[in-house]
Amino acid sequence: MDYIIEAIVACFLLLGGVFMFIGSVGLVRLPDLYTRLHAPTKATTLGIACILLASTIMFSIKNGTLSVHEWLITLFLLITAPVTANMIAKTALHHEIKMLKRSKGHDLMEPARHRAAPCQKKEQE
């Protein structure tokens, strides 16, 4: 019984560690700031959720009562990760940081910076 629980906890830990590592690799490998935003907001959030889940299982079994306060951190990070990404994207737009040459929608950068509606795309509505 103990062996199985240890195996489950170890699996979650490894999954979480791998995801956090991938998030950081993305931070270095991806070519421009806007794409770099994607890796930490997603991979790292899931990574930490996995590690906290492992901690929940471990302490629940160890103390005999359900230990759920780790979920508070998960919840907090789930709420704050998009806000952080959004704020960084906002400042990047404000500072006119260029997207990668081959990315689509370069014409949207200027209206986005001024928080205006896109001009030539009106027919979509």
């Binding site: 950081s24 770099r36 930490i48 960084i88 400042t91 500072h95």
Partner: peptide, 28 residues
Amino acid sequence: TVQDRILALDTMYINSIALIVLYGLHEG
């Protein structure tokens, strides 16, 4: 850019949370 540095710092925060939780697991 400055934004890259902020993003890196934010990711480091989250990684250090994971490290602390791991230490808690290690110490039981």
